[in-house]
């Protein structure tokens, strides 16, 4: 497979991790979460917090892409915004909260530019970029039936700006910049996604990697043919909730105590046709 490589003569001066992204990246290989650690989807030297559940979710998401070489990731501001340039995949950053508007145009453009080839556009954002500032562009992309998958990394706060409450923060939670506690309950965004027309909606926890993989793949497959899809990955912020990495991991598991997966009849039939054929 032809991928962008270092210019001849510059290979040796590129830091080692960049060389590994080229040599051991996921392009053109049939990989999954079980293969994590055997390929390079994200450099080790990324700047996110040690023990971050969001980073784990991000890694699982990248490892679950059905065709990484034909996937275009649209992200926006957030913790993950500082690691998306450090992955061996196509990624663009949209102004805060506009990732689904950006992806709407990109999806249409890809279908015109590559009519014979399936290009998977996906959006990755935080709870703020989907449920707060980005709620209008997000829900309107769903109302319009734009066919791409959206993945919310729900760390239940604004983490990289010091710990403000977001709409997805549960009621009563005290954060650095919410000293009186969050004054209203978590926005029922998963329900909003269903009402807004998503053909497939799921909630997963990074503590269950195989489940994440299955949901990510289903969301992308359904978005190719049926309609918009949404997956919420619950990954509470260890730093701002003042939890140890183990405690945060446990809490992320508690938040998704049982499988939460919804699909329309059309999505179910489509998935059954694919999974039955596999």
């Amino acid at each position: 497979m032809d991928v962008i490589k270092p210019a001849p003569g510059f290979e040796d001066i590129l830091p080692l991790e960049y060389q590994e992204l080229v040599a051991d990246g996921p392009y053109g290989r049939s990989l999954g979460v079980k293969d994590l650690g055997t390929f390079k989807e994200l450099i080790e030297d990324h700047p996110l917090c040690a023990g971050c559940n969001l980073t784990l979710s991000f890694r699982l998401l990248l490892a679950s892409l059905p065709k990484p070489e034909d996937t275009l990731i649209v992200t926006t501001a957030g913790c993950f915004g500082v690691i998306h340039p450090q992955i061996a995949l196509h990624a663009s950053i949209a102004p805060f909260g506009t990732q689904n508007a950006f992806a709407s145009g990109l999806t249409r453009a890809m279908r015109i530019r590559f009519p014979e080839k399936q290009k998977d556009v996906i959006t990755i954002g935080g709870d703020g970029s989907f449920a707060d500032i980005g709620m209008a562009p997000t829900t309107h992309s769903w109302f319009r039936g734009e066919k791409f998958a959206s993945f919310m990394l729900d760390n239940e706060c604004y983490a990289n700006t010091g710990g403000q409450a977001s709409g997805m923060t549960p009621e009563g939670v005290v954060l650095n910049m919410a000293p009186k506690g969050k004054s209203f309950d978590k926005i029922p965004f998963v329900e909003i996604a269903k009402l807004a027309g998503c053909a497939y909606v799921a909630t997963a926890s990074p503590t269950k990697p195989r489940q994440v993989e299955s949901m990510v793949r289903r969301a992308i497959l359904v978005a190719r043919e049926v309609g918009p899809t949404f997956v919420r990955l619950a990954c509470v912020c260890a730093t701002n909730y003042k939890l140890t990495p183990i405690e945060a991991h446990r809490k992320s598991k508690e938040l998704v105590s049982q499988t939460d997966e919804y699909m329309t009849e059309a999505a179910r039939e489509y998935l059954e046709s694919l999974e039955g054929a596999a």
């Binding site: 270092p6 210019a7 510059f10 001066i13």
Partner: peptide, 22 residues
């Protein structure tokens, strides 16, 4: 200080410029 536009082989022009810089 070579930047990304010459460090990577985006096009024939970028590869030619990289070679000229070397």
């Amino acid at each position: 200080f070579p930047g990304p536009l010459v460090l990577w082989g985006w096009s024939d022009a970028s590869i030619r410029k990289a070679r000229a810089l070397q």
